[in-house]
Amino acid sequence: MSLLDPLILQLDQALRTLFVPAPTKRPMPGETLPEPELTEPERRHAAALMRIDHVGEVCAQALYAGQAFTAASSAVREALKRAAWEETEHLNWTERRIEELGGRKSLLNPLWYAGAWAIGAIAGKLGDPVSLGFVAETERQVEAHLEGHLRQLPAADQRSQRIVDQMKADEIAHAQMAISLGAAELPIFAKGAMKLAAKVMTTTAYWI
Rank of each mutant, 00 (worst) to 15 (best):
S2Y: 00
L3E: 06
L4Y: 07
D5A: 07
P6Y: 05
P6L: 09
L7A: 10
R16D: 05
T17F: 00
L18S: 11
V20I: 05
P23S: 01
T24P: 02
R26P: 05
P27I: 08
M28A: 06
E31A: 09
E31G: 01
P34T: 06
P34Q: 08
E35L: 10
E35N: 09
E37Y: 12
L38E: 06
R43D: 11
A60F: 05
A60I: 08
Q61P: 14
T70P: 01
S74L: 13
A75P: 07
A75Q: 13
A75M: 14
A75E: 12
R77M: 00
R82A: 15
A83C: 15
A84H: 08
W85C: 12
E87Q: 12
T94Q: 13
E99Y: 05
E100C: 09
E100G: 08
L101E: 11
L107Y: 14
L107R: 09
N109H: 10
L111G: 15
A114N: 06
G115H: 07
G115C: 13
G115W: 10
K125Y: 01
L126W: 05
F134H: 11
E137W: 07
R140A: 10
A144C: 02
L150E: 09
R151N: 09
Q152V: 02
Q152H: 03
L153V: 04
A156M: 08
D157S: 04
S160V: 05
S160I: 12
I163P: 06
I163G: 02
D170K: 06
A175T: 04
Q176K: 12
S180K: 06
L181Q: 03
A184P: 02
A184C: 01
E185F: 03
A190D: 07
K191F: 02
L196N: 04
A197I: 05
T204I: 15
